[in-house]
Write a protein that binds this DNA or RNA. Structure first.
Lengths: 242, 242
DNA sequence: CATAATATGTGGTATATACCAGTTTTGGCT
DNA sequence: AGCCAAAACTGGTATATACCACATATTATG
């Protein structure tokens, strides 16, 4: 299969991957320590870490700060184009969701928000910052910017559940058009810290800009995900004929 | 700004980032060699490579095998939900596209394709493998699986241009429904080699499953992108009122 | 028995060094 | 000029080692 002169760290990567797939079915299982792996495979920690970095990039293992390496759980399937709440998604797929509202306040729209939303600069905007968990793992932080025009009093509501459920059931708001932006990046200071990973960890950025039936700005959502925590599934166009 | 005990490789990362942003506007510019950076910043190559890996993860620089590190061009904006050709996208954004058809053949649908498309296993399917460039940089490889039912003779056409243009203009086919899947992964042997990067390099996977007005399978597209080469922009729902 | 101090284990950061495998440049030759 | 071999240069891989910061387990102490 592989040439005999395959680099040590790739051999190690493949052996670890096979070991993870064969022996160990459960997620969140802890790998042997780097030192132990180095000894067991008769190499050095530096080389072991090269192999681990490969598996991390592939989303098969993740690190918990100074505690060790763990097998990554299955990716969460996620459709950012539908207004179904995170909690429901996670529950439907057999996991336990958790949401923490880190802050919520009324702010004045900064220039960049004005540019993408069409709001006047300095106009009042609700800002909600939340952290979401799948089981015990923090997988994303979310920045919400909401037009208070049609949902005054939103900040008094419980924002640990679905904001879209509030929009629908309490304020009668329905998004008509959404623009999604998705790209990979390295997580920086605030988001990386909030997710308990180191600066520079691989992340996926999802931005969702929603307008209502009249074409007025409803909400801007900026989500910073761990890159290995999700698989985006979007349906576009009419559903198929039966 | 940063504490005085910030690790060397992060200081170096930030200095390089600042240098890239300030001094150097042009993309594809080559960075000094690792050894020169190590000397200039009075550290070792290992530490320099940590800093470079951070900038690579952030998509600001990329490596060309044993030739050096280069400043990453702007990301291509890409909407996989529209049937507009790659060549047009790239041209519209001021770059020069190029497409190579690596192979095209009639194959029998394997089990996995049957599972997602609804075709019978073993049914004939066109398979087209292409590599696409933005300017001189190979940014993705694309695996197309096309239902020959409504477009026989497709393989005789020139597949270096848009397949969707062929569908539209020559066969009168229009996709009605699409399912997109997007997630990050590490590029493996065949795709990494085709893109001239090393195995394990960060990539973005985009899968597009298209059905026509009658709900019959049209095409499955599997795209493997360099993670830093694109920004996905998808519009969902009716356009805004004027 | 609960709590605090301590020891141990873990990944995180860093230096110094060496050789390998390709790429690019150089320099000599025709 | 054009060609080709040799040299220089680049990132890729690898060993050996050391210390740090934080997490957890262990032990001493009230």
């Amino acid at each position: 299969m592989s040439r005999p002169d395959t680099p040590v760290y790739l051999q190690l990567r493949d052996r670890l991957r096979a070991w993870i797939e064969a022996e160990n079915l459960s997620s969140q299982h802890r790998l042997p320590s780097e030192r132990e792996l180095a000894q067991r495979f008769n190499t050095t920690r530096v080389t072991v870490r090269q192999a681990l970095a490969q598996l991390e990039a592939d989303g098969r293992i993740f690190r918990s700060n100074r505690r060790g390496w763990y097998v990554t759980p299955e990716r969460l399937r996620y459709d950012p184009s539908r207004d179904v709440g995170f909690n429901q998604y996670v529950t439907d797929q057999g996991y336990t969701p958790r949401t923490e509202t880190l802050s919520k306040q009324l702010i004045e729209a900064p220039a960049w928000l004005s540019a993408v939303s069409g709001l006047e600069q300095g106009a009042p905007v609700y800002q909600i910052l939340r952290r979401r968990y799948v089981d015990t793992r923090a997988v994303l932080v979310e920045h919400n910017y909401i037009n208070p025009a049609h949902c005054s009093g939103l900040l008094s509501e419980n924002t640990d559940a679905s904001i879209w459920a509030l929009f629908r059931d309490r304020f009668g708001l329905h998004p008509q058009h959404r623009q999604l932006e998705i790209y990979s990046l390295a997580l920086k200071q605030p988001e990386a810290d909030a997710l308990g990973v180191s600066h520079g960890a691989a992340g996926l950025y999802i931005q969702r800009l929603s307008h209502d039936q009249q074409g007025t700005f409803l909400e801007l959502d900026r989500e910073y995900w761990l890159h290995d925590a999700l698989k985006i599934v979007v349906n576009v166009g009419e559903p198929m004929a039966p």
